[in-house]
Nucleic acid binder design. Structure first.
Lengths: 330, 330
DNA sequence: ATGGTTAATGTAATCAATTACATTAACCAT
DNA sequence: ATGGTTAATGTAATTGATTACATTAACCAT
C-alpha cells in the first residue's frame, strides 16, 4: 500500500502538499492539485487511517449503550446508528449492559482513554449528574430516553403528545373506560405517556381512575401484558379500551382478552406503541403508535457527528414525528 | 494522559523497558518490573491505543456482515460477537447488506485498507471463489452459513442431524405424512435440513413425496408460513405433521392451520427452528430445534481472534450442539 | 532595481509505542 | 586478571500523516 511519501515522490512535490490536497485545508494551485490527484490515482493511494487517527488523536469509534438487541425496537435504532456511522468512517462498539451500572461506567471509560470519540445512550442506569459531567468532556447523545433539562443532546419523539393523541382517538370512538398498561421502568417516556393519557382523559371530561393504570414490572414481556389485562378485566368496571406502552404488551393484552372470550376490537380496543415488524404478523393486526426507530438512530448519529466535529458542546434536541397507525385492534 | 516516556522517567528506566513490561515479551528483572509497575500505577498510565495500533499496524476493528438485526436470530448472534469482541479490545463494524453484493464488497474492502483486522460473515451474497481468495489474505470466519469444503473457518450446528432428529421424533410419534416448509434462499443450512428430512423419512420406511415440500420464497415471513400450510392442507393426502425451517414460519403454519379449524397438535404437529425468544410468547408454545445463537457468535469471534493472532490461516470448523425443545405444538 | 507583501510550497518536528541493534554488567572458566 | 558468554537494559530508528515554521517565488509599488 502506497504511503504519502510515495505519492509525493510520484507527483514531484512534498508530503505537505499531498496532505493539503487530500484534506482541502489550504490553498494549492489547480495545477499541482491535478498533479497530486493524478499521482494518487496512479498509485491507488489511500491515506493510512491508523496513522491519521494517531496523529489526529481520534479513534473513529463510537460507543453505543443499549439495553439489548433482541428487542426489535433497539435492533432498528442500532441499525440506523450503525449505517450512518459506517458511512462516515466510524465503527460502533456496542455494549448491552442489562442494568449493570459498573459495566456501563467501564464501557464509557473508553472515552477517557481516547478509545472512542463519542457515545450514544439508548438508556442508562447511571445518574443524570454522572452523565452531565461526562458530557462536559465528551460528545454524548441520548436517544429515545433522556434526562430532561440536563442540557444533553437528545433525539426522541414527543411521548406526551403521542399518548394524548392515541387516547383522543379512543375517546373519539366513544370509549369512556380506558386502561393504560405500562412498565415499572423509570423511563421518562413512560411518565410522559402517562401524563398524556391523564391529560387527554381530563380534556375529554373523563375523570382519572388510578386502578385503570396497570404497572407490569420491568421489561416488556408478553406475559406481563396478559397479566395486566386480566387485572383490568377483573375490575368492577372493566375498560373498553386500553393503551399499552409497547406492542409486545399489546399483543399480550389481546391474548389475555381473547382467553377471556372477549372480541377484539368489539369488546376491547387495544393500541400499542412502537410498530415493530413482527407485531403485524399476528391477527388482529394491532393499531399502534409508530416510532421511527431507524431514523431515531440515524438522527442520533448525525448529531453525534456534529458534536464531534464542533468541539464546543452545543446541545441539540431533535423531536421526530410519531404516527398513529390504525389497524384492526380498534 | 501520561505517555510511556513519562513512565520511563518516573521509573528511572528506558521506554524500551516499559514496553517490555507491559507486553511481557522479553525478560525483565523482577526488581525493575516492580519499579515499572509502580510508576505505571502512580501515573495511572494506560498505553495509547492509537499509537499502538498504528505502530503494530492493526486496527482492532472487525467487520460483521449480517443480513439484518431485526431477525432475533441474528440479533442474538451479533450480541455474542459484540460481547466477545469488546472483551478483547475489539470493536465491531456491522453492515446489513440486504443482498447488495457490491455494498458487501465495498465493506470488505476495509480489510485491504487495514481499516479492519478480520471479518465474520453471517451470510454472503458473494461467491465462494471470491471469499476463498479474500480469506487467503485476511482472517475470515463464517457463521451459521458457510461454503462446505472451501477451507474457510466456520461455526454452525449440524443442520442435517438436526432436521433428521426432528423428523425421527415425529415418526416416533407415529406420523407418516410429514411436510417440510422451507425458504428459497440458497443457504446451505436449508439443503442440509432438506437432506436430513429425506433421509430420516427413508430410514423410517416412508417414501419421499416432493409435494410435501413447500418452498416459501425468500425471507422468513409469517405470511409465508400461512400460505405454505394452506398449500399442504389442500393436498389429497395432507400432512399430519410439519417441520419448518424457522420459528416464524412455524408460527405462520400454526396460524394457517388454526384458521382451517385444525387443532394443534392433535390434527397437526408443528416443529420450528431457532427457538427465538418471542416464539414462546404465543400459544401453543412451539416445539423447536434450539440453535445456540449467542454461542455461535461467541465461538465465531473466538476463532477469529485466534486467526488474527496466528497469522497462518489454519482452518477451524466448530459444530455446536442443537437441542430439540419439546413443547405444546407436537 | 529594490523592498515589501502575499501566496504556494517545502522542511522537519511531532504524535506514542515498538523493536533492531548497541551497550553494559555480571558471571564463569581459564 | 583476561576473555568469552549471556542476560538486562538502553539508544535511536521507525511507522505515516499532520502541521508549525521556513523558504521560495511572484508580483506590485516605489
Amino acid at each position: 500500500m502506497a504511503t504519502i511519501t510515495d505519492v509525493a515522490r510520484e507527483a514531484g512535490v512534498s508530503v505537505a502538499t499531498i496532505s493539503r490536497v487530500i484534506n482541502n485545508n489550504a490553498k494549492v494551485t489547480p495545477d499541482t492539485r491535478a498533479k497530486v490527484l493524478d499521482a494518487i490515482e496512479r498509485l491507488q493511494y489511500q491515506p493510512n487511517v491508523l496513522a491519521r487517527n494517531f496523529r489526529r488523536s481520534e479513534s473513529r469509534v463510537i460507543l453505543v449503550l443499549c439495553p439489548n438487541f433482541t428487542n426489535p425496537y433497539y435492533a432498528n435504532v442500532v441499525t440506523g446508528i450503525s449505517d450512518t456511522a459506517r458511512q462516515s468512517g466510524y465503527s460502533a462498539m456496542f455494549c448491552t449492559t442489562q442494568g449493570d451500572k459498573q459495566l456501563e461506567k467501564d464501557f464509557l471509560d473508553m472515552l477517557k482513554a481516547k478509545r472512542a470519540d463519542g457515545a450514544i445512550l439508548l438508556a442508562t442506569e447511571n445518574s443524570e449528574r454522572f452523565m452531565m459531567h461526562l458530557a462536559e468532556q465528551h460528545p454524548i447523545v441520548q436517544c429515545s430516553e433522556y434526562f430532561p433539562d440536563a442540557g444533553l443532546s437528545h433525539v426522541s419523539i414527543d411521548n406526551y403528545k403521542a399518548a394524548r393523541h392515541a387516547i383522543r382517538y379512543l375517546t373519539g370512538l366513544g370509549h369512556k373506560q380506558i386502561g393504560f398498561i405500562t412498565s415499572n421502568d423509570a423511563y421518562l417516556s413512560m411518565n410522559r405517556r402517562l401524563q398524556g393519557y391523564k391529560d387527554a382523559l381530563e380534556q375529554a371530561g373523563i375523570s382519572f381512575s388510578a386502578e385503570l393504570v396497570q404497572y407490569t414490572g420491568e421489561g416488556y414481556h408478553f406475559s406481563n401484558g396478559v397479566k395486566a389485562i386480566r387485572n383490568l378485566l377483573a375490575l368492577p368496571k372493566p375498560p373498553t379500551a386500553v393503551l399499552c406502552v409497547s406492542d409486545i404488551l399489546a399483543l399480550g393484552a389481546i391474548r389475555g382478552a381473547e382467553d377471556a372470550k372477549l372480541k377484539i376490537p368489539e369488546d376491547l380496543a387495544v393500541i400499542g406503541f412502537d410498530d415493530v415488524e413482527y407485531a403485524t404478523m399476528f391477527k388482529p393486526h394491532i393499531t399502534t403508535v409508530r416510532i421511527p426507530c431507524y431514523n431515531l438512530g440515524v438522527s442520533s448519529m448525525e448529531i453525534l457527528l456534529n458534536l464531534m466535529k464542533e468541539k464546543k458542546a452545543t446541545c441539540r434536541e431533535v423531536v421526530l414525528d410519531f404516527e398513529l397507525v390504525v389497524r384492526d385492534s380498534t
